[in-house]
């Protein structure tokens, strides 16, 4: 029996970099990202995994970092919005498309929107509009009315398809 008492040394990979950080068992991934790793691109809104603002990818799948224990990220790959652009600063097609389609106003939901969309396009690059809407329905935006967000995802989808053909 191995118990984790007050502190755990969390070994994980964040945006391609190996990280070792002391955490407490009850700390959420959002708390560790924002407060210990200063990755404040991850936003927390509802704080109870309903709104999707805090979405980050763990091993390619979206999680609500506000309620997902940092403990669960051990030996896994975490991707936050800070890790999406190329090292030379070239934006990911989703980021470019969100800008071009004006798919945000206040921007608070945007990191979560983009990461959720990335997970969808990585899994199912040929998703229909209906599938995009269904997949994204758990990410809430209170500014844009969603139309431009779906358009941006479709634009990125086409751009990714062009690049790989």
């Amino acid at each position: 029996m191995s118990d984790t008492s007050a502190q755990i040394l969390l070994r994980t990979t964040v945006n391609g970099l190996d990280v070792a950080v002391a955490i407490e068992p009850q700390e959420t991934l959002a708390e560790v990202l924002r407060e210990k790793l200063q990755l404040i691109g991850t936003k927390v809104s509802c704080n109870v995994q309903v709104c999707g603002a805090c979405t980050v990818l763990v091993d390619g799948l979206p999680v609500s970092s506000c309620t997902y224990l940092a403990y669960e990220a051990r030996d896994r790959q975490v991707l936050t919005i800070e890790g999406l652009a190329s090292k030379d600063g070239t934006l990911h097609p989703l980021q470019t498309a969100f800008i071009e389609e004006n798919a945000f106003q206040c921007g608070f939901c945007t990191p979560g929107m983009i990461l959720a969309a990335k997970s969808l396009l990585d899994q199912r690059p040929d998703s229909s509009e209906h599938e995009i809407v269904e997949y994204m329905e758990g990410n809430i935006c209170r500014c844009t009315g969603y139309r431009s967000i779906v358009a941006a995802i479709q634009k990125a989808q086409a751009s990714v398809a062009d690049r790989s053909s």
Binding site: M1, S2, D3, T4, S5, A6, I8, E24, P25, Q26, E27, T28, E31, V44, N47, L69, Y71
Partner: peptide, 22 residues
């Protein structure tokens, strides 16, 4: 930001061990 109260996490290696812990 509303935080989780402190707790510890136990890591059983078998169902029997998990049952004993509970």
């Amino acid at each position: 930001m509303n935080r989780l109260p402190a707790f510890t996490i136990s890591q059983p290696q078998s169902v029997a061990e998990a049952s004993e812990m509970l």
